[in-house]
Structure formats: structure tokens, C-alpha cells
């Protein structure tokens, strides 16, 4: 059996399940595979999915639910058999995540709502004297939504230093490139102007991400924003930066090619024993 990185396994599960279910949103899911590998590979602290003191994660870009399910499965938090019900009749694992599934903290799917939920969750932690952290994973196009900036103002004003927002800056949205639809830059400067502690990071460098995610400076009370540069469809060459893969599902030939590329990438990354 080929040894896999956590991110590699997440990607493979994304490809397998989207193929089996014949469902799209693959590019959006692949672009956050490394961010989720960083979070589930040691950053998120939880004794169980029902532990009130667990760190919270809000997948505000809910359309990448498959990546979340894959990360839960790859880190042994979700049964593989259950993962294989993805988008099946009667399954709890829909194309957008619902909190009824253990491991999913909040239901999402309507863009622009997650940061507010995260701000409330972070405020609750502070009021309860808890050191739990709240992570909100958003998309860059999601910042088109005005409500994101309501939450951004609130979190900065109330100095929610236990709140970390990660933006998946893949530069793409449903109809085209973000720069053509609604210019998102200068993204880091905008968030900094709203009072956030902003870092620009490589969204595919798992170790680097982990260092950035846990590198809270207790003396800095600002909420943190990680602007994670990513490649839409990362890991599957014919999907990378291709708008069409926002919605398209895979055919058999594409599936074979995707699997081969992911296996080759993992062989290159993981030293043979």
C-alpha cells in the first residue's frame, strides 16, 4: 500500500467520492485540502465531536463540504463507509455540510454567514473563560458578501483574539476569475484596515500553515486573518485554475488521470521506507 500524506489522502477521497457520487465542486474542495490537512493534522484540539471545549471550525465556504468530510475521514473522525454515502439518497453528507453529522460544528452553504457564527462562538469562548479557538474557513469570493464585513468589524472592535479566519484565495468564483467579477484586492490591506492581524501564507504548505495557525501572540488581541494563496483544483493538473471545475463532475478517463497524478505526487512527497 502506498503511504500517503494526510493532504494526499484527503485529495484522493475527494476524487473518489465526487466520482462515485457524480457531483461537482471538485476544484473548490481540492484548493482547501492542504488547509484542512493542517487543521486536522494537529491544530484543532478536540476530545470528541461533542466536547464543549473543543476548538470550533466553521466551513463558511460550505460548497467545499466534500473536502471537510474527506478530512474528517482521513483523520479517523468519520467512518469511511459513512463517507461513501456522500450525496446518496437519505445521507447526512450532502453537498453542503450539516451539523447533525458528528464532526461538523455548524451547517453552512449560504456564503457570508460563517464569520458571524465564528465571531459569536469566539465571543462565547471568551465569556466562558475558555481558551478554545475558533477557525473560520472562507472563500475569497465570499468576501463579496457585505455581511462578512459586518462580522469583520465586530471581531476587530471586540478584539476577538481567539478567532482565526482563513481565506482560500484561489482567485476563482462560479462565473470567472474574482478579479473580473468583483476586484478583491488589495485583500490583505482591506482586512488590516478593518483591524485584523493579517498574514499572507502559502495555502498548500501544510507545515507552514500549521505554524501560522498556532502562532497566536497572546499580547496581540486582534483577530487573525490568514490569506492563504491557493490553486483552484490543486493536485489535478487539468483542473488547476480551470473555471469549469467549479461545477463539473468527473468522467472515467478523467478519474483515472486524477488518481494517477495524486499517486505520483504522494510518491514524490513521502520518502520510501
Amino acid at each position: 500500500m502506498t503511504e500517503q500524506t494526510l493532504a494526499g489522502l484527503i485529495r484522493r477521497l475527494i476524487i473518489d467520492e465526487s466520482m462515485r457520487a457524480h457531483v461537482g465542486h471538485i476544484g473548490s474542495a481540492l484548493s482547501i485540502a492542504d488547509i484542512l490537512a493542517a487543521l486536522y493534522g494537529g491544530v484543532l484540539r478536540s476530545a470528541s465531536s461533542h466536547d464543549p471545549e473543543r476548538d470550533r471550525l466553521v466551513l463558511s465556504k460550505g460548497h467545499a463540504a466534500l473536502a471537510l468530510y474527506a478530512a474528517l475521514a482521513a483523520s479517523s473522525r468519520l467512518d469511511r463507509a459513512l463517507l461513501s454515502t456522500y450525496c446518496g439518497e437519505g445521507s447526512q453528507l450532502g453537498a453542503h455540510p450539516e451539523h447533525v453529522l458528528p464532526g461538523v460544528d455548524f451547517s453552512t452553504g449560504s456564503l457570508g454567514q460563517g464569520l458571524s457564527i465564528g465571531a459569536g462562538s469566539a465571543l462565547a469562548a471568551r465569556m466562558q473563560g475558555s481558551d478554545r479557538q475558533v477557525y473560520v474557513l472562507m472563500s475569497d469570493a465570499e468576501c463579496n458578501e457585505g455581511s462578512v464585513w459586518e462580522a469583520a468589524m465586530f471581531a476587530a472592535h471586540h478584539r476577538l483574539g481567539n478567532l482565526v479566519a482563513i481565506i482560500d484565495v484561489n482567485g476563482q468564483q462560479a462565473f470567472g476569475y474574482t478579479r473580473d467579477v468583483l476586484e478583491p484586492t488589495p485583500l490583505a490591506e482591506r482586512w488590516a484596515a478593518f483591524g485584523w492581524n493579517v498574514s499572507e501564507v502559502d495555502g498548500h504548505d501544510v507545515e507552514g500553515l500549521q505554524q501560522s495557525l498556532v502562532a497566536a501572540d497572546a499580547r496581540d488581541p486582534r483577530p487573525r486573518l490568514l490569506a492563504a494563496r491557493t490553486t483552484f483544483g490543486k493536485g489535478v493538473s487539468f483542473m488547476e485554475n480551470e473555471i469549469a471545475w467549479h461545477y463539473w463532475p468527473l468522467d472515467a478517463l478523467q478519474y483515472e488521470r486524477a488518481c494517477a497524478e495524486l499517486a505520483a505526487a504522494d510518491r514524490a512527497l513521502v520518502p520510501a521506507r
Partner: peptide, 23 residues
Amino acid sequence: NVGVAEQNMVGMATGLAEAGYTP
């Protein structure tokens, strides 16, 4: 007083309620 931002207020209340509050 969360400011003139009703959407954020309700979203925050969701996060607060999940943590055990009755907002």
C-alpha cells in the same frame, strides 16, 4: 450593542447559542 448590523447579530447569536447561551 453590536452596532447597526442585524445579520451579524443573528449569526453571532447562533455561535453564542451553540456554546450554551440563550441570546
